[in-house]
Design a binder for these strands. Structure first.
Lengths: 212, 212, 212, 212
DNA sequence: GATGAATGAGATTTCATTCAT
DNA sequence: GATGAATGAAATCTCATTCAT
């Protein structure tokens, strides 16, 4: 079901989701799920695919996770925590100028979508595969992230620093475009990571009508 | 596999993809596939789901389409044709001012993503489910659409009408954000279709640094 | 289901089974069935395979034959008629010497299994696919052919010309071996058709203990 | 698909193919496959037929065998191993006289085709159902068996013990006829197993022109 | 009389998950 | 706690056959 390359056994642990305290098998399974699901999607990835990408068996997976769905929830949840945390940290470190603040969170958002590209991809495209209880949790965090952007943009408009007539739409415009980075970004592509960040900052500021 | 609501039989025919000359069953199947796959994705939608949403049986589906994969290819291909055609028509009708031209194609792009929301959703999120031969075709059309935007933005920069320092990235920024409309748009939401269009035109022009 | 080579449309009509009076379509279908079933067996050949090897559609097949099973019966029945007729003719033309008579029917049997190789193959290996009514008919003709051999061998033993102590077993030994020709014979192989015939005659005579 | 009688559960374990070390379920499935396929052929036997003849479900079959095709390969391969081994053992135990040697391998060949009648039947008639990789393996073993006979017959001719002018054809004549035993033999028929063996030995010796 | 659509059963195979050991 | 077997439902797709036109 899963193409050849996803079956390799030695999966470099996607460090973002693995914390030292975790049991290594559970972490390997989560990492394998990221690998496999990023390529084939939730419904296109079988429990056997995931388990064997982690070098174990389905039975082991069920020892660590309640279900395939549970694995997805954990995966999305952690991914969003990373994103939210990075964005909040950026705000904490930024000064008061709305342009600086928007630039900082664009940078955070873009960097996470490059560094944890696969988790981000899954968190975006597999929302529909989430069942009710987990979905609510994930949607809530997703909305929280959006509201962080909304607030910064509104503040900028209120202060006159940004001139856009449509702050909420501009805010969504920006997060959507920056989230899309996970779709096309390839490490080693024509732009360095810093290039990508710089340009997205610049364009985002333009998009809110911020003559720098 | 597919939740109850996706099984309803009364599917408003997604007129964009159905031409009067088509055999009605084949068209109904295509329409049903759009309905079902937009909700559950390609791998999450069974052939039985699709067939019964069209009021027939899997065997009938295989009489009209080579495979489930073939159905997806047809669906994506037609969807992109609609998008490309709309964008090209918009350029043909637009005047020479780069701002008008960009506004026109943003409008076309956004309208297609609202009018044919489900096809657009599938065409975007199920690229990975496409197998080699069909995938190339679809990717080619997708790239063609992007290049239409790239050219307009570059022209605007060359003529001095747009001031962005990163025309290609801005171009992708804009298409990504406008494509995302299919993700969140709900008919009858707080904004009219015209509102959505107007605001995206405005933000897109800001994003390329076009003081109007 | 059927490998590539069996799908070609231009099937040289296997003249043995086609008589000038037949409707050409019915004959083409029979010929196609021989082609396809010889390669894939009855259960391995679909009605669609057969029809398209004949350049038509399943519906046409059902216009000419009652069912797939009916086609098989017709095919086996005609094949055995050819075999029986050839063997009887050989006996009619042969002189009184048992050695000549056995030689003559071995030649007839072997020639039919080379000339109508595919029909013979099917007639032998698809007996089990025949359902009750047709099966009886075919088995009866098969037994009749065996009895022709049995009688010749017994006559030879009675007259002292053959010395085998086991005439019936020798008879079956010979028909089994000669029927097997259809299994391995390839036109253009190392032996000419006449070689094959000559050698089988000689060995068969040895097998009944006939010092020539 | 398979008629009633083939569905009975009480299958006498075909001990030839079942070794004590085997997992019982895998062995039962192999035994059931032999039963069912001997009656209906490979394409005429469904995975469900086989599984339920073994008292399990298709899913269990796929836990033990890669595919229906894989089951066939295993079955043919083991059957031919038994045949080859029996023939080689017979040669090892036989004295130097070519007549004894031919008699010994005819006996071995015939006995295997009576004792493991169904495996032999399948191994002979389902060669065409074997797909490329497995087919080569099976054909190779089949050829090896033929060569054992060829060598014995040639030796007999070289030493002057056999007088046939066509050793290779006589050799094939004999194996074909002896293989055919699996086609008509019924336990409890008019001849005892020893009778069948004795008579085939005698006729085979006649067929190579061996005046005893 | 010929053709394309339809049909309902059934084909092989895979699924997520559980259970003994 | 870990493993291989088992399970029953469901996956995609094909079957022989019939029916309108």
């Amino acid at each position: 079901m899963v193409p050849v390359e996803a079956r390799r056994r030695t999966v470099p642990p996607p460090t973002v989701l693995t914390r030292p305290g975790d049991e290594p098998t559970a972490a390997a399974l989560l990492a394998a799920a990221v690998e496999v699901m990023a390529v084939n999607g939730y419904h296109g990835s079988s429990v056997r695919d995931i388990a064997s990408a982690a070098g174990t068996s389905p039975a082991v997976l069920y020892h660590h996770y309640e279900s395939k769905q549970g694995l997805l929830v954990r995966l999305c949840d952690r991914g969003l925590d990373v994103l939210l945390r990075a964005t909040e940290d950026a705000l904490d470190d930024a000064g008061p100028d709305p342009a600086d603040r928007l630039g900082a969170i664009v940078e955070a958002h873009v960097r996470v979508h490059m560094d944890s590209q696969r988790e981000s991809l899954i968190g975006n495209s597999e929302l529909r595969a989430l069942e009710a209880p987990g979905r609510a949790l994930v949607v809530a965090k997703r909305d929280a992230q959006q509201r962080l952007f909304d607030r910064v943009v509104r503040d900028g408009v209120r202060s006159g620093r940004f001139t856009t007539a449509h702050p909420d739409e501009a805010s969504r415009f920006i997060t959507t475009a920056c989230t899309g980075v996970a779709t096309w970004y390839r490490r080693g592509g024509p732009l360095t990571d810093d290039d990508v960040v710089t340009r997205h900052r610049a364009i985002a500021l333009d998009a809110v009508g911020c003559g720098r």
